Simulated assay, not measured.
Amino acid sequence: MYNLFMTAGEDDWNNPTWTIETGRFLEHTVTVLKERFRNLTPEAALYLKQIPALFAYESFRDQPARVGRVTEIQQLQNALRITLAIDPAVAPIPQAVLAALYPALDINTRRFEHCRTHWAVKDVDLVDVLTRASLLGLPQLPPQPIPPKVFVSYSWDSPEHRQWVAQLAGILRANGIDAILDQWHLRGGEDLAVFMERSIREADRVLVICTEGYFDRAMNRQGGVGYEHTMVTGELMRNVGTTKFIPIVRQSGPTALIPTELNTRLRFDLSAGVRYSAELEALIRDLHNVQTQMPPLGPNPYA
């Protein structure tokens, strides 16, 4: 059995997450499997994360398909958001090669399945099909690591600052980090407080973009920033040793203004300047938990 994800979005499978309307879940899936997975119980979700996945593009895109796993399934009000991990051991499958495998993969071209964005579950051994086509040299597909999930907390200082934050989040996503940002993930009619609470709770790390405006709102407990910072303060009080909250400095003054609760935490300075690229690279390494290699300990020269 395998998951089939078909998308019309350009380069969707180069991103760590993908969202689909709930109504398109289990399209082009046989009835017995629809009944098994329709309600997405915890047991069903766990099973879907354990089986392999084929991430394909609608035929008009002419982009190669990838193989991997679903690492997380989030149920939204009218949509499903998956976190995905591409298997680097499996080469991209060109569209023309994949099209020749449609019958073996139970992809129904007569019903234009290859031209429809959807998520199907197929009662087909994906590994066997790919092996027979000489596309896979492994007896099985190993589980894939879950990308780090990062929530970006910031103040709406100006349209330019919002754009800067979106660009930063885009860079993180391009580097395999599942960045959560209100500009992308907050839907019309959604409760702002619930969104902030859920995002902070579910994130592995929280980037606190410390501008002068953020500092003022946080310290005076004003608006959404004040509410978010209250939650941050509460979690820091419950777990003093946590590394979840990372101050990100974006300021023009000589002295960085950082809320008191975060002032002693290791920060990354992404203010404009010659250090920006190095600081950004260090941040990405930290979020991926990649430590700077330590030189080996040599012998005592006086022993």
Rank of each mutant, 00 (worst) to 15 (best):
F215H: 14
W119Y: 08
D62G: 09
E160L: 11
W119A: 01
S271W: 06
L98G: 04
L33E: 10
D62E: 15
A282E: 10
T243H: 11
L4W: 01
E160D: 12
L84P: 00
R173T: 10
E202L: 10
T29W: 04
L181Q: 02
I180S: 02
L266G: 07
A91V: 09
V150R: 00
G253M: 05
C210N: 08
T109K: 11
L168F: 09
Q74A: 11
A256T: 10
R111D: 12
P259T: 07
M6N: 06
N289G: 08
T17L: 08
L283S: 01
V121L: 04
V208I: 15
V30S: 10
L135Y: 09
T83Y: 03
P16N: 07
P88I: 05
V90T: 13
T131H: 09
I86N: 02
L135H: 07
L262E: 04
E43N: 11
S59N: 13
R111F: 12
E279M: 12
D178V: 01
K122Y: 03
D87N: 14
N39K: 15
I246S: 06
Y57R: 02
S158Q: 07
E21H: 08
G189I: 04
L270W: 02
A282K: 13
P94L: 05
A193K: 08
T242G: 02
L46R: 15
A272S: 14
E43L: 14
G188V: 05
Q163K: 14
I180A: 05
P296G: 02
H28E: 06
R265M: 06
L266R: 14
E21Y: 10
A120H: 00
K34D: 06
L262G: 03
L136C: 15
A120N: 01
C115E: 14
D125C: 07
E197R: 12
R187Q: 13
L141T: 06
E160S: 12
D178W: 00
F268R: 05
R61M: 11
M1Q: 11
R275Q: 15
D11E: 12
I200L: 13
M219H: 04
I107G: 01
Q167I: 13
D182Q: 09
A8E: 10
Q291E: 12
E228G: 02
V152D: 00
R221M: 06
T71W: 03
D128T: 12
L105F: 06
T31L: 12
R24L: 07
E197V: 07
E235I: 05
V97G: 04
K122H: 04
L138A: 13
R217L: 10
C115F: 11
S277E: 15
R201Y: 11
N15Q: 14
L40M: 15
Q183A: 15
Y227H: 08
V129M: 05
N220I: 01
R66C: 08
